[in-house]
């Protein structure tokens, strides 16, 4: 058996889009994506809006039923039948701490709900005890238990969402943009908490975000997606220092650096135009329409991820 906690092989997620009265067309949100995550590791997943990074997370935990491909968790292939059991070990934290908490439930019930679903307690007292210890773990006070979500600030709400994910004692958490809705000063608190939890509980993360500085900070490895395809995957520092794929290169150069001297000296590679519509994908390499290295071959075939040494995977024909 492999030592990976999660293995994603050739994951495809297509959504049917009505284009005419009788016609539908597949929107290829995720097209043939493969990667793996080790226990206790953080894999960062970055890309622009519409690149399919959130869909990858949701397909893994089967909020969507994948069109094709295989997802193996802890040595067991995820199917419709065993998903409830899998979710006992795999949880998710959502981006928007406002819409992901039920406004009509108290904090105690929000955090206790996964315990109800998985029948993880015998008495009410035991449930309450578990909830209170979870609240302590994420830095909430015991007297918060009887309050409702609207009484909390964004950062505190995100803590509630994290406590809910931790309730079942998971080995793996999918974090879908968990800090992008928060103010900078609060962001750092929540990021530190994610790191502390990982150290204490050994939980692995798939950390989906668009803020590259945050992702570089928290991740062991980073994967870059563009239009449903994974274009590069490497160790976090390696990817930031030596981006190979032309898209990664321009993505990194576009990040505004909070340091005036570096910012003034920096040569930005500004991409032309917009991301093509996923309904109308270019043939071959999805990035070729905006790529400055594109050749005729790029239009003919789609490059696959190949290892460029030390596990640095790149999908590009010319670099």
């Amino acid at each position: 058996m492999s030592d990976n906690i999660l293995e994603v092989e050739h994951l495809k997620q297509y959504f049917p889009i009505r284009t005419g009265f009788f016609e539908t067309k597949p929107l290829k949100a995720v097209d043939d994506v493969s990667f793996s995550i080790k226990p206790g590791e953080t894999l960062g997943l970055v890309g622009e809006s519409g690149c399919g990074k959130t869909t990858v997370g949701r397909s893994i935990i089967r909020i969507y039923k994948p069109t094709d491909g295989k997802v193996t968790f802890d040595g067991e292939e995820i199917t419709d039948k065993n998903i409830l059991k899998i979710r006992r070990k795999m949880q998710m934290v959502f981006q928007d701490p406002y819409s992901s908490l039920n406004p009509r439930m108290t904090v105690e019930d929000i955090i206790g709900e996964p315990l109800d679903v998985h029948k993880m307690y015998k008495t009410r007292a035991e449930r309450r005890e578990k909830v209170l210890s979870l609240m302590e773990t994420v830095g909430l006070k015991p007297d918060h238990a009887s309050r409702y979500a609207h009484e909390f600030s964004g950062g505190q709400r995100q803590r509630i969402g994290i406590a809910r994910a931790l309730a079942v004692d998971p080995k793996f958490i999918i974090c879908d943009e968990p800090v992008s809705a928060l103010d900078v000063s609060i962001q750092a608190q929540v990021i530190n908490m994610f790191e502390d939890l990982q150290k204490e509980l050994g939980v692995a993360y798939l950390f989906i975000a668009h803020d590259l500085l945050v992702v570089q900070h928290i991740s062991n490895r980073i994967a870059v997606m563009y239009l449903g395809h994974m274009v590069e995957l490497a160790d976090a520092n390696e990817l930031m220092d030596n981006p190979v794929h032309p898209y990664t290169e321009s993505l990194l150069s576009a990040v505004p650096i909070p340091d005036p001297k570096i910012a003034r000296a920096k040569q930005r590679i500004v991409l032309e135009g917009d991301v093509p519509s996923p309904l109308n994908m270019p043939t071959g390499c999805p990035f070729r329409t905006r790529c400055r290295y594109a050749t005729e071959e790029c239009a003919a075939r789609c490059p696959e991820l190949t290892d460029r040494g030390n596990g640095h995977l790149v999908a590009c024909l010319n670099k």
Partner: peptide, 16 residues
């Protein structure tokens, strides 16, 4: 201090 950046990239963040 609370943004990850440059040489402090992998250091623990100091939140407010």
């Amino acid at each position: 201090r609370s943004i990850p950046e440059g040489s402090r990239m992998k250091e623990r963040l100091v939140p407010i």
